[in-house]
Design a protein around this nucleic acid. Structure first.
Lengths: 176, 176
DNA sequence: CTGACTGCAAACCCTTTGCAGACCG
DNA sequence: CGGTCTGCAAAGGGTTTGCAGTCAG
């Protein structure tokens, strides 16, 4: 699943304008990195972007991906997903939206909720500090993982799933 | 700010019951690690728990903290905060609640919203997979950081804050 | 007593940074 | 052409793991 061409083009235009305005150079690498985030609905992390972009520019380095992603973030062209810090995922959808996240594989998807958007943030929150954004985070197990779970259940069979097996159950991203 | 004694005691009882039920040993270290998460409202990460617990058990190692935290998570005695994976923060408040997070220092606080809890999750979400939980994540800059920002503004003075200064602006956690 | 648990140290991996050459504007 | 940007390599720093001794039950 990808974002529509028209929307991607619109986002790229915005990038061009912003680069000019900020006085940063719009290099081939930067354009492709942005294009990747802008056309994906997967909320890729740096490594995922890297793998994709490498298909088009075989010489890009992961460093450039990191640097560019943060630059885009500073320019306000992408947002980060997650509480912030380490292993962040990026998001070029700047419209108001919310996230569904699979706790097993990390899949992230957007959804909208007019009902929530109409809600007022409780006053108690303002005592903590300023409010820049508010969104819903729904967690669950995505269909794909649920299916795998069933298969695994079949082979593991009667063993009670008790503690201690975390590291193995979360697939780690690997640099290919 | 800490959780009340009575609530902590209740949580510890639950830990004891769960350990017995799961057949895992309730060691001194595990008890103190859990007690730390259970009495904090800071949503500490592994390192923060480590620093605190070390005050009471000078010989604990960070490894044990990690192992125990994930074990508690597997036992359902603590939840994780954030989309999951790496540099996760833990939370022993299992009641329905929401999070305020400072994008500058990472401070995390709970709040409640009956209005949100009454909302129904959009049907579109169910297409992605099962729904285990849903909560609001409000992001902003906490009062403490806002104050520091002002001071810094004073010395940096007239320089326009454009792009490229991210690494420096996010204080990194350090092991003491 | 004995298997589960701990601490140690080293391995892992993701992310960042210094630097010299490449390239955009 | 000059300053920015890139790729490389190495450092940095958080998290995980193998192992042998220790301790809860």
């Amino acid at each position: 699943m990808r974002v529509e061409q028209a929307e991607i083009a619109r986002r790229v235009e915005k990038l061009k304008a912003a680069s000019r305005a900020a006085g940063v150079k719009l290099t081939h690498q930067r354009l492709e990195i942005f294009r990747e985030v802008a056309s994906s609905v997967e909320h890729p992390d740096a490594d995922a972007v890297f793998r994709e972009v490498r298909g088009r520019i075989p010489t890009v380095s992961i460093d450039t991906v990191y640097r560019t992603l943060w630059m885009l973030n500073d320019l306000g062209l992408v947002a980060t997903l997650g509480p912030r810090r380490e292993s962040v995922r990026f998001d070029a959808n700047l419209a108001r939206h919310h996230h569904y996240i699979c706790t097993r594989c990390g899949l992230a998807r957007d959804f909208e909720s007019a009902a929530f958007d109409a809600l007022r943030i409780p006053d108690a929150v303002k005592d903590y500090g300023s409010v820049d954004s508010a969104h819903i985070e729904v967690r669950g197990v995505c269909d794909s993982c649920a299916r795998k779970q069933c298969e695994k259940q079949a082979e593991t069979d009667s063993k009670p799933p008790r503690g201690k097996q975390r590291s193995k159950s979360w697939p780690k991203r690997k640099r290919s």
